[in-house]
Computed example of a mutant assay.
Amino acid sequence: MLGGMTTNADEPATRPRRRTPAGAAVLREDVTEAIRAAVFEELAAVGYARMSIEGIARRAGVGKTAVYRRWRSKLHLVLDVVSAVAVGGLPVPDTGSLEQDLRLLYEVTARALRHPLASQILPDLQAEAARSPEIAEAVQQALRDGQAGVASGIVAAAERRGEIRPGADRDLALDLISGPLYWRSVVIRAPGLPKDHLETLSRATAQALRAL
């Protein structure tokens, strides 16, 4: 503390600051967001294997210490970003209809998977996962947690409306809901979706869920 001022973990010590608890490091949210954005750009540019904390920091316009204050390794940084996108990027729709809930989810997911950065990053992480059990487990967990929350919300709403029977297998429901579009867009990387594909997929998935 200098002259009644506290220092910020990401700002010069000479700037006046509001008093914070002793020993507390104030992490600026704009710096955190800049680092997260840099992770996506760096992954798309060089891939996970060649990506470095130095490169991320340089792209974000911060020092390496700003990155290490938030994440202890490259892997934890990437998984945190992937998990945040998986969980926060998808809504839990409740349109009043199982089929329409699925259609809305698929529209949002399809747009996300078509994003240039996503189309480069996801296959690269899948390739790294094939070489590293640690990355494989962590990536699968991050993606599954995000999708599971959305799928469970859709199934729970459908159960309340009486569209599917109570106690349906949630793991199987997640596979039915998330598998087909991810397979087509990420695994085999089909060039685009046929007209009315999402509508047909929504209808077929709803029928499968009703049969659980």
Rank of each mutant, 00 (worst) to 15 (best):
L113T: 06
R58V: 09
V155Y: 11
E33N: 12
R28K: 09
L117C: 02
Q120S: 12
E137N: 13
H197I: 00
K64Y: 07
V87Q: 14
L212I: 15
D145I: 08
A112M: 13
A24G: 01
A173N: 11
G149W: 09
L104Y: 03
E137G: 12
A84Y: 02
R28S: 15
A60M: 08
L125W: 04
L172Q: 11
Y68V: 05
L27P: 15
I135E: 02
A208W: 08
R69T: 03
S73H: 00
E54Y: 15
Q141Y: 06
Q141K: 09
R161A: 14
S52M: 07
A25N: 07
E54C: 13
E134A: 12
V81G: 05
R19H: 13
A38H: 00
A148Y: 13
S73R: 07
V78R: 00
A22C: 02
Q100P: 04
M1G: 11
I121D: 04
T6M: 14
I56D: 00
L102P: 01
S132D: 15
A38M: 04
D80F: 09
R69V: 06
E11D: 11
P133F: 05
L79E: 03
V186P: 01
W183F: 13
G96V: 01
V155T: 10
L176W: 04
R50A: 15
A25Y: 10
R184V: 10
F40E: 10
V81L: 02
T14R: 13
Y182S: 05
A168W: 12
V78M: 05
G3S: 14
